[in-house]
Amino acid sequence: MTTYGEIGELLPRRAESPSDGEREQSEDAFSRLLDGQQKAHHAALLAPVFTLGYVAGVRFGHTGLALAEVPLPPEDVAMALAPLIRHLEDIAPGDVVLYHGSVTHLHGRSRVHRVVTDQLGTRYDLEQRRDGFWVPSVWDVRRKSITPQN
Rank of each mutant, 00 (worst) to 15 (best):
Q128M: 12
Q37P: 01
G5N: 09
L81V: 02
S26Q: 15
K144T: 11
L34D: 06
G61S: 05
Q128T: 14
T3M: 04
T2C: 05
E16L: 11
G61R: 10
K39Q: 15
E9H: 12
R143N: 06
P83E: 00
M1K: 02
F133A: 10
L84I: 06
A80P: 11
A29Y: 13
L72F: 10
L52K: 11
K144R: 09
L120Y: 12
S102P: 02
I7H: 09
R129W: 01
V138P: 00
D131I: 04
P73G: 05
P18I: 10
E89N: 08
G108R: 03
G8P: 04
H87C: 12
L33F: 02
P73Q: 07
L126K: 05
G36M: 02
R129S: 13
R23G: 10
P71D: 03
S19F: 04
V77R: 05
E75C: 06
V141D: 15
G101W: 04
V115E: 03
R114S: 12
L72R: 13
I146G: 11
G5W: 00
A29R: 14
E6D: 03
L10Q: 13
S102Q: 07
L46A: 04
L106V: 15
A80T: 13
H100E: 09
T63C: 12
A68I: 04
E22M: 06
V58F: 06
G94E: 04
Q38Y: 14
V116T: 11
G36T: 02
G64Q: 08
Q119C: 05
H105C: 06
Q38P: 07
Y4F: 03
A29Q: 12
G5C: 05
D140A: 14
L126C: 05
G36I: 01
V116D: 06
G53V: 11
T104V: 09
P74A: 00
Q149S: 13
H62F: 15
D95R: 05
F60K: 08
L11Q: 08
G94C: 01
A47H: 05
I146Q: 01
F133G: 07
A43K: 03
E75M: 02
T63E: 09
L126I: 13
V77N: 01
E75R: 07
R142E: 13
P83A: 01
H107R: 14
V112A: 10
Q37F: 04
S17N: 09
L120A: 12
V115G: 04
P73I: 08
E24Y: 00
D118L: 01
G101H: 08
H105E: 12
V96G: 01
L11D: 12
L65H: 07
S110I: 00
L81W: 01
D90N: 09
L88M: 08
V138E: 00
V97W: 02
A15L: 11
M1F: 03
R130Y: 02
F50G: 08
S31T: 10
S137M: 01
E127R: 07
V112P: 00
Q25F: 09
K39S: 10
D90G: 14
R123E: 01
G132Y: 01
Y124W: 15
Y54T: 12
D125H: 13
V112I: 15
Q37C: 03
G94S: 03
G132C: 02
A44W: 07
A47C: 05
R86W: 04
P71I: 06
Y4E: 15
A80H: 05
R111P: 05
T117N: 06
A68S: 14
H113I: 08
V141M: 14
E9I: 08
V103I: 06
L84C: 07
L45T: 09
I85D: 08
S19C: 14
